[in-house]
């Protein structure tokens, strides 16, 4: 039962609970209008202590499409924190007004702290470089929608694998399913961190590391792109040498399977060339839409909202 629970990390959810959320998301996706009033009278506080227009819009849109209302802020200078209020006290106070809290904060562990004091469910919408579980749910729904299931897939993740928290969460979550294989495509400076590889090794999950996107792309069912940031390199020369290796172009897409999908947590900068956008395998803008549906399903479950008859 997800009712009255908080979601802080993807690992808070069992595979059965993920399945429950995916099923509900797909039902909503098919006939969203049926769900337009299931959260009527419910109030969601969206507390964005750091800017994130995309995630805030997605949560707000999700709640409004369920017939609920939202309140909150996207600038911490307008909140009581600016007056020195602790997170614990903010949680206690907001828990008296709202039915659900969505929080993004630059400090790691903030959502967990809020969940301890709020007395209502808390959804972590990103706590620094730590967790962003609804991005993982978004990615899972996108893959499921295009591929039907996760088992047996070869998933390539490309770009900044060292600092990309959405990639760490997705890889460790997919590794819970049977027979998923990974290709980690990155510059040597930005390879997958040891803690992720240790987890895969412990589970006996197969993975390969490479610096060659062109060489790897033909094997993939899913290609998850992320941005290689200039500031991560010590040497400008090295950055310039490698940056184009990790830009996905229409030319490179010719080497991929006809049913491979391309995903990206967005925003993209230049790591996916715009000539890929019209390719039917480009799933990254649809991914945004699935993000809203999966958040609708999550809000419903945490609030214990009944499915329409």
């Amino acid at each position: 039962m997800l009712k009255n629970r908080s979601l802080i990390a993807p690992s808070d959810l069992t595979l059965e609970e993920i399945e429950e959320l995916m099923r509900l998301s797909e039902k909503i996706l098919q006939t969203p209008e049926r769900y337009a009033a299931v959260c009527r009278g419910k109030l969601m506080a969206s507390l964005f202590y750091e800017p994130s227009t995309r995630t805030k819009f997605s949560f707000d849109a999700a709640m409004l499409r369920l017939g609920g209302n939202t309140l909150g802020f996207s600038d911490p200078n307008t909140s009581s924190t600016a007056k020195g209020e602790t997170i614990a006290d903010s949680a206690r106070t907001i828990g008296k007004y709202a039915d659900l809290i969505v929080v993004r904060h630059p400090k790691e562990g903030t959502a967990k702290l809020m969940s301890r004091y709020a007395g209502i469910p808390v959804i972590n919408a990103g706590d620094g470089g730590h967790h962003h579980p609804t991005q993982t749910l978004t990615d899972l729904l996108t893959i499921r929608h295009y591929k039907g299931s996760y088992s047996g897939l070869t998933v390539g993740v490309c770009g900044d694998l060292k600092f990309g928290r959405t990639i760490h969460s997705l890889v460790t979550c997919l590794a819970r399913y049977e027979n998923v294989r990974f290709l980690f495509i990155s510059p040597e400076e930005l390879t997958m961190p040891a803690f992720v590889k240790e987890e895969l090794n412990a589970k006996g999950v197969s993975y390969t590391e490479t610096t060659d996107l062109e060489g790897a792309i033909s094997q993939l069912d899913v290609l998850y792109m992320s941005r290689v940031q200039r500031e991560r390199f010590i040497s400008e020369e090295e950055y310039l040498r490698l940056k184009d290796y990790f830009i996905l172009t229409a030319e490179k897409m010719q080497l991929a399977k006809s049913d491979m999908i391309v995903m990206h947590p967005l925003p993209r900068i230049n790591e996916i060339a715009t000539d890929v956008d019209s390719d039917p395998r480009a799933a990254y803008f649809e991914q945004v839409r699935y993000g809203m549906f999966v958040r609708m399903a999550l809000i419903m479950k945490l609030l214990g909202a009944e499915e329409p008859a």
Binding site: K107, G109, D127
Partner: peptide, 12 residues
């Protein structure tokens, strides 16, 4: 000891 951890801001 993680300076980015909320416990170092809130003194828990």
């Amino acid at each position: 000891r993680n300076p980015r951890c909320i416990t170092n801001q809130e003194h828990i």
